[in-house]
Write a protein that binds this DNA or RNA. Structure first.
Lengths: 236, 236
DNA sequence: CGCAGGCTTGACATAAGTCAACATGCGTGG
DNA sequence: CCACGCATGTTGACTTATGTCAAGCCTGCG
């Protein structure tokens, strides 16, 4: 496979870890990577498995799930295009990773990937940077899960999703109403926020009734009054 | 200052990041590090500050605190001896770091520390490793905070502290009763577990009444029946 | 058309929070 | 050495946010 076939047309080329590599360096990864499509609902990694994938997410959204032995679940992370999937170094997988939408991965054999990582300090540094970002995000979410009300969590979540939607093309007036589709069902939002589907539903209706957001139907949300939503996010 | 003065007698020499360095390499860090004592209650880093410390923790316990604007607090991490404190790379501090006990730091100017880090890939890799471990721990705690009952969280916490106590000298029969002192007040345990001080207190008394643990007084705890405690941790 | 998955809404249960009183234990200074 | 005072911890009565259970409603798809 030629480099053009794999990397040049890569949709996440600039944002992914490989973005740090020059054309030449890219060859190293290119020769070992292969693309793979996965369907919505497919599990990429099972918690506890030893053989762990090493990949970049090209498209779609994945969830990282922690679960108790008796089946309670918590989504502890979401992976979006250009995010790194799996573990660079060997070991048991800590969490189950499942596709929330159809998705596409660029998979690398771990040994080879590790070697590239070691040869390119810049790339390793970027991986560290990302891990630190994820750690900070996880810790902020700990605060939400432990101390914030359902309304605050929902408002936080909607603002975060709105930000992501705004960054992903979908241009709109900066402060004006913004409409976008959530990539998650109500149940999955509950799994992210540590709430039940009923509580999510009720709070969304409340926000709608308060005129802060609109729910045009389907998975769409309209942020009618971002300032008001921000207020909800910090004192509910 | 000679290397003997700073590193040879270092109590965390083997476990800290510097443990990866040879005697020679150590010089690089040694010449730039300085020890500093801090008192219980002192804050080392304020969330939002720009000038951020870069240090190894030599002794004592620090807490990493996330807070809402209206004052609700959550401890999102604890730092023990040999742990790295602060941020290797510049930027605003994400969380406030405060000493829970008197403590001692080995502080490095960031620029110099970063240089050492870049020159020693092994050390950087170790930092990545630690960050990943912290990320996994944070995510497991997200599950606890979001989905576990107060009793489960307390049991989890006690088992974790017991493990730490066992590893920190304090030898005892592997499965027999183990007694140790918690480095945290009830209130701080609440801050870690996302509970109130009253709930912590009540659950501890319940576990004691159930004969699973003993509370000899002060901050001491005795794990009388580790198996039973583990059961509490997974189904309450 | 009719089913299935997702969503909404309601009535009710409950774990944990809040408020308040009291106990304990530790350190300081008389 | 004792006594006082403050920080910490315990316990109780009551409140409340959120979970649970249950019924019914959309909406898109076969």
């Amino acid at each position: 496979m030629k480099i053009q076939d794999i990397c040049t047309d890569c949709t996440v080329r600039d944002e992914a870890l490989c973005g740090t590599l020059s054309e030449d360096e890219l060859w190293a990864l290119n020769t070992i990577g292969r693309r793979q499509r996965i369907a919505r609902g497919d599990t990429v990694i099972w918690a506890g498995d030893t053989s762990v994938i090493c990949a970049n997410l090209l498209s779609g959204v994945l969830k990282l799930v922690a679960a108790t032995p008796d089946g309670r679940e918590q989504i502890v992370g979401l992976l979006y295009p250009a995010d790194f999937v799996g573990q660079a170094h060997a070991g048991l997988a800590d969490f189950t990773i499942t596709a929330l939408t159809d998705a596409e991965l660029c998979i690398f054999p771990r040994a080879a990937f590790q070697r590239v990582l070691e040869d390119h300090g810049r790339m390793e540094r970027l991986l560290l940077q990302r891990t630190l970002t994820a750690l900070t995000a996880a810790r902020h979410r700990m605060l939400s899960l432990a101390r914030k009300s359902a309304e605050e969590r929902i408002a936080d979540f909607l603002l975060e999703m709105a930000l992501r939607a705004a960054n992903t093309g979908c241009r709109a007036t900066p402060d004006g109403p913004l409409t976008f589709d959530l990539p998650l069902t109500r149940g999955q939002i509950g799994d992210v926020l540590g709430l039940t589907i009923e509580t999510v539903s009720r709070q969304m209706t409340r926000l709608k009734a308060a005129g802060v957001i609109g729910l045009p139907g389907g998975r769409a949300v309209t942020i009618s009054d971002r300032a008001a939503l921000a207020v909800c996010a910090h004192a509910a």
